[in-house]
Simulated scan of single mutants.
Amino acid sequence: MGIRDQLGKDLDALDSEAGGLQTVSADVIDVTEDGRVNLRMMGADIYGVACTDAYRNRKAGDTVAVRRGAVPVVLWRLGEDPAQAEQNDVEAIAEQAARDVQVVRAATYGTGAPAGSGWQIPSAVYVRKVDGRMELYFQVADASDPSPGSPAVPSPKPATISPTASGTWRGGRPDEYASAPTQGDWTGRGNRRGAWFYGSAIQNACAGKTVTSMKVAFARKTGSGVNAKRPMHLYLHAHSSPPSGQLNLGSGPEDLLRLSVGATGTATLPTSWANALASGSAKGLAIYASGATDYMSVTGGRITVTFS
Results as ranks from 00 to 15, higher is better:
284 G>E: 10
126 Y>H: 13
172 G>L: 04
49 V>L: 00
94 A>H: 11
63 T>L: 06
190 G>A: 04
72 P>H: 02
123 S>L: 08
81 D>F: 02
124 A>Q: 14
47 Y>R: 03
308 S>V: 09
29 I>S: 02
77 R>K: 15
119 W>D: 12
116 G>N: 09
302 R>H: 08
113 A>S: 11
292 A>S: 15
93 I>H: 09
239 H>T: 03
48 G>F: 00
175 D>A: 09
286 A>H: 07
120 Q>P: 09
37 V>H: 00
34 D>Y: 07
10 D>M: 13
201 A>D: 15
80 E>I: 09
166 S>F: 14
219 A>D: 07
210 T>H: 03
256 L>T: 05
37 V>G: 00
137 Y>D: 12
75 L>I: 03
44 A>I: 08
124 A>Y: 04
213 S>T: 14
33 E>G: 05
148 P>V: 06
253 P>D: 11
108 T>S: 12
14 L>M: 15
132 G>A: 10
223 G>T: 04
102 Q>F: 09
13 A>I: 13
61 G>P: 06
295 Y>F: 15
109 Y>P: 03
89 D>C: 04
50 A>V: 00
118 G>Q: 04
40 R>A: 11
7 L>A: 14
63 T>R: 10
259 L>G: 05
178 A>K: 06
139 Q>H: 11
120 Q>S: 10
146 P>M: 02
20 G>A: 05
162 S>P: 07
127 V>H: 10
52 T>C: 00
106 A>C: 10
153 V>E: 15
86 E>H: 10
157 K>R: 12
261 V>H: 04
279 S>Q: 08
202 I>F: 00
106 A>Q: 14
288 Y>C: 09
283 K>A: 09
284 G>I: 08
156 P>E: 02
20 G>H: 05
2 G>E: 13
9 K>E: 14
94 A>R: 15
140 V>C: 05
216 V>I: 14
194 G>Q: 07
207 A>N: 11
300 G>L: 07
122 P>M: 04
244 S>D: 13
286 A>Q: 04
35 G>E: 01
164 T>G: 12
27 D>Y: 04
178 A>P: 02
306 T>S: 15
278 A>N: 02
277 L>F: 02
170 R>I: 13
222 T>K: 06
183 Q>P: 08
211 V>M: 03
147 S>V: 05
61 G>R: 02
206 C>S: 11
255 D>A: 11
212 T>R: 13
54 A>M: 09
12 D>C: 03
81 D>N: 15
222 T>L: 05
